[in-house]
Measured scan of single mutants.
Amino acid sequence: CHSECLGNCSQPDDPTKCVACRNFYLDGRCVETCPPPYYHFQDWRCVNFSFCQDLHHKCKNSRRQGCHQYVIHNNKCIPECPSGYTMNSSNLLCTPCLGPCPKVCHLLEGEKTIDSVTSAQELRGCTVINGSLIINIRGGNNLAAELEANLGLIEEISGYLKIRRSYALVSLSFFRKLRLIRGETLEIGNYSFYALDNQNLRQLWDWSKHNLTITQGKLFFHYNPKLCLSEIHKMEEVSGTKGRQERNDIALKTNGDQASCENELLKFSYIRTSFDKILLRWEPYWPPDFRDLLGFMLFYKEAPYQNVTEFDGQDACGSNSWTVVDIDPPLRSNDPKSQNHPGWLMRGLKPWTQYAIFVKTLVTFSDERRTYGAKSDIIYVQTDATNPSVPLDPISVSNSSSQIILKWKPPSDPNGNITHYLVFWERQAEDSELFELDYCLKGLKLPSRTWSPPFESEDSQKHNQSEYEDSAGECCSCPKTDSQILKELEESSFRKTFEDYLHNVVFVPRKT
Rank of each mutant, 00 (worst) to 15 (best):
V397G: 13
T127N: 07
Q245C: 07
K301A: 13
V104S: 09
P284A: 13
E148R: 10
M235F: 04
F174R: 00
I395L: 09
N130L: 13
K226S: 07
A144Q: 11
L252E: 05
R138E: 04
L204P: 02
V308S: 09
F275S: 13
E111R: 13
T273K: 14
R164P: 05
I395G: 14
T254I: 15
L345P: 05
G217C: 08
R347S: 07
G313R: 13
L133S: 00
D393G: 06
S338N: 08
Q354I: 13
T213W: 05
L147I: 05
D289F: 09
Q199S: 05
E264V: 03
L153R: 08
N307R: 01
R272F: 15
R179P: 00
G189I: 01
G131Q: 01
I214Q: 03
E156A: 05
W352L: 14
D377R: 11
N248S: 10
K409R: 09
P394S: 13
Y167Q: 15
P329A: 07
R370H: 03
I278S: 00
F220R: 13
G256R: 05
S171V: 02
V381M: 08
W207L: 05
F220N: 06
V238N: 07
S260K: 04
Y191R: 04
S401D: 05
R369H: 06
Q339S: 10
Q306H: 12
Y194G: 11
G139T: 03
P304K: 08
G189S: 08
A120N: 02
N248L: 11
L349H: 00
T273W: 15
F221M: 14
L161G: 00
E237G: 08
E246W: 03
L123F: 11
H341E: 11
G295D: 03
E155Q: 11
P287N: 01
A195L: 10
L201G: 00
S116P: 01
C261S: 02
V381A: 03
A251L: 08
L178K: 00
E262G: 07
W205C: 02
G217F: 01
I134S: 12
S119R: 05
Y372A: 02
M297P: 00
D289W: 02
A259F: 06
E155L: 06
K253M: 12
G131T: 02
D393W: 15
D292F: 09
S166V: 11
V325P: 00
N320V: 04
G217E: 00
S230P: 15
A316E: 15
L107Q: 04
D377K: 14
I395H: 11
W282Y: 00
H341G: 14
V128W: 14
E302L: 08
I157L: 05
T213K: 10
L279S: 07
I404Y: 01
S239H: 02
I278R: 00
W207Y: 04
L331R: 10
D206F: 06
E264W: 14
A195S: 09
T273H: 13
C126K: 01
R332Q: 15
Q199K: 15
V397H: 13
L298S: 01
K112Y: 06
S338T: 13
A259I: 15
V104W: 13
S400W: 02
Q306P: 15
W207C: 03
Q354N: 08
P288G: 03
F311C: 07
L151H: 01
L180N: 03
N307A: 14
L294F: 06
N399L: 10
R138K: 06
K209S: 08
N224H: 10
S208W: 06
S171T: 09
S171E: 14
T213D: 14
E236V: 13
V381R: 14
I378M: 03
T254D: 04
A149T: 13
T386W: 05
V359E: 00
G183T: 02
R291H: 07
S116N: 14
P287A: 06
T127C: 06
I214N: 02
I157S: 00
P284I: 03
Y191D: 01
I232N: 01
V117Y: 02
L123D: 00
N334E: 02
E246Y: 09
R332P: 10
S398N: 15
Y194C: 15
R165S: 15
D197T: 12
W322N: 01
T241L: 14
P342T: 12
V363N: 13
L123E: 01
L280N: 00
A195T: 05
D115P: 03
D315W: 05
E155I: 11
V325C: 14
D335Y: 15
L266A: 01
P388I: 06
E231N: 02
D312V: 07
E146T: 04
G318L: 15
D312Q: 04
A356R: 02
L349M: 05
K407S: 09
K209G: 11
F296N: 05
C126S: 01
I379L: 08
N141Y: 14
A120C: 12
R291E: 06
Q258Y: 11
L161Q: 00
G318Q: 03
V128S: 14
I134G: 06
L153A: 13
F358C: 01
D335L: 05
P342S: 08
S173E: 11
I134T: 14
N198L: 05
R164M: 15
Y194E: 14
K103D: 05
F221V: 13
W286P: 10
E237L: 13
S166K: 00
N142W: 05
K226A: 09
G295S: 06
L298V: 07
Y372Q: 05
L178V: 04
Q382I: 12
E246G: 15
H210Y: 15
G373E: 07
L180G: 06
T118G: 15
Q314H: 04
A251K: 11
F311R: 11
G131W: 00
K242E: 13
E109I: 03
K277P: 00
G131Y: 02
Y300Q: 02
S173Y: 08
E187F: 12
A120Q: 03
L362S: 05
K375L: 12
L252I: 11
S116K: 14
V117G: 14
E264K: 03
I163F: 08
P330G: 05
L265M: 10
D292R: 04
Q354P: 08
G189A: 09
W282Q: 00
I327S: 02
S274W: 05
R369C: 07
T353C: 07
M235I: 10
I135L: 06
G217S: 03
L172K: 00
Q258V: 10
S319Q: 05
G152S: 03
H233V: 09
H341M: 06
L180I: 15
N211M: 12
L362R: 02
K253D: 03
G140M: 05
K267N: 11
E156I: 09
S119M: 11
L219I: 11
T309S: 15
L201F: 10
I404Q: 09
K409V: 12
S401E: 12
L212M: 12
Q245I: 09
A385S: 07
